[in-house]
């Protein structure tokens, strides 16, 4: 319990720091959300307005900029604005979009499911590919299958996501015509599952290669332990030993990395979402960065970071379940 509490405090600290830095970054970088509203009229350096006689266009720009900054609340001190934002965020109010006035929370809850499904889909594909390959590779370590799998996974890891996406679009979309290359969020459930296959495969194949390598290495190590020899001496079948005895203690690295990836893919699949036109959290972030819609970027980053850190806490809890030694160490410390 103390462990969980400590991690949760940690979570809060990370969230505050990350959101503060986001806020700071957004404010430091030139060209705020005002640019969107005013275009060329926008005056970034308001001290220019105080000079004696300025040309009418600049004067007009000055008035408009000042009025807009007041409406958006941008004229208030930085810390005050951050404090208010943080207070609202704690109650679940992430403010309204600068662009269209829609509450940021609504935009996020609307796009999050697509990203979650894509993440889940990709993970399922990755595990389906990785686990059998890793088990067989470890069981016959050093033989042709193992060598082949190692080489292939090394190659797959070196393919950038966007190249993989293009390759799949070319193969399955253009040449074979099996899968749609553009995701249609309004289609029926069956069509959407089909439409999400290529993006999920793009993400899942690379993950699968990483997972397979990690699990194989750990399995090879586990298979040399005494309790495996013991199980063998007791006459257990290879199948039983591999699946029931060796697999569980070998999943540490796999769980760690899979956990990291769960966090990373929520809102992190910007390129894949863009290539396949999926309206997920990644697309929302990309578009709002371009529109300089601070509020949305800020809110989305908060959600993404929370997901990321929380998944890590869950992963730490899973260690305790997987390895009793960890549990005891924690109970003692």
């Amino acid at each position: 319990m103390r462990f969980v509490l400590r991690r949760l405090t940690n979570l809060v600290v990370v969230l505050v720091v990350v959101s503060f830095l986001t806020f700071l970054l957004m404010n430091l970088l030139p060209g705020g959300p005002e640019v969107n509203y005013l275009g060329p009229l926008y005056v970034s350096d308001l001290s220019r307005c105080e000079a004696g006689d300025i040309d009418p266009q600049l004067a007009e720009g000055c008035t408009q900029t000042i009025r807009l900054r007041e409406t958006l609340g941008l004229d208030q001190p930085f810390l005050e604005r951050y404090g208010r934002w943080l207070g609202n965020a704690a109650t679940g109010d992430l403010g309204d979009s600068y662009k269209n006035g829609v509450p940021v929370m609504d935009t996020i809850t609307e796009s999050l499911p697509t990203s979650l499904w894509l993440m889940l889909y990709a993970q399922v594909i990755a595990f389906t590919l990785a686990i059998p390959v890793a088990i067989y590779s470890a069981y016959r370590a050093g033989r042709w299958f193992d060598r082949g799998a190692t080489t292939v996974s090394f190659g797959v890891i070196a393919v950038p996501v966007f190249i993989l996406a293009i390759l799949f679009i070319f193969l399955f979309g253009v040449k074979l015509g099996w899968f749609p290359t553009i995701y249609d969020p309004t289609a029926s459930v069956g069509e959407r599952i089909k439409g999400m296959f290529l993006p999920a495969l793009t993400l899942g194949l690379g993950l699968g290669a990483v997972y397979a390598r990690l699990l194989r290495t750990d399995l090879v190590a586990t298979l040399q332990e005494d309790f495996i020899l013991m199980a063998r001496a007791k006459g257990m079948s290879t199948r039983h030993i591999l699946l029931r005895h060796a697999l569980r203690p070998s999943t540490f690295s796999l769980i760690t990395v899979a956990g990291i990836q769960v966090g990373a893919l929520i809102g992190g699949a910007l390129v894949v979402e863009r290539i396949f036109s999926m309206p997920g959290l990644g697309s929302v972030v990309t578009e709002s960065v371009f529109r300089r819609d601070y509020q949305v970027v800020q809110g989305a980053i908060l959600v993404i970071t929370s997901a990321y850190v929380m998944v890590n806490i869950v992963v730490d809890l899973i260690y305790g379940y997987l390895d009793p030694r960890v549990r005891h160490a924690r109970a003692a410390g």
């Binding site: 830095l21 970054l25 970088l29 992190g268 910007l270 972030v285 990309t286 970027v297 970071t305």
Partner: peptide, 19 residues
């Protein structure tokens, strides 16, 4: 740690868009 828990692609995207 803080830098790492920041979504990297988004950070790069933001910096480059603004700079």
């Amino acid at each position: 740690d803080v830098l790492l828990s920041f979504p990297a692609v988004i950070l790069a995207l933001a910096i480059v868009t603004f700079l």
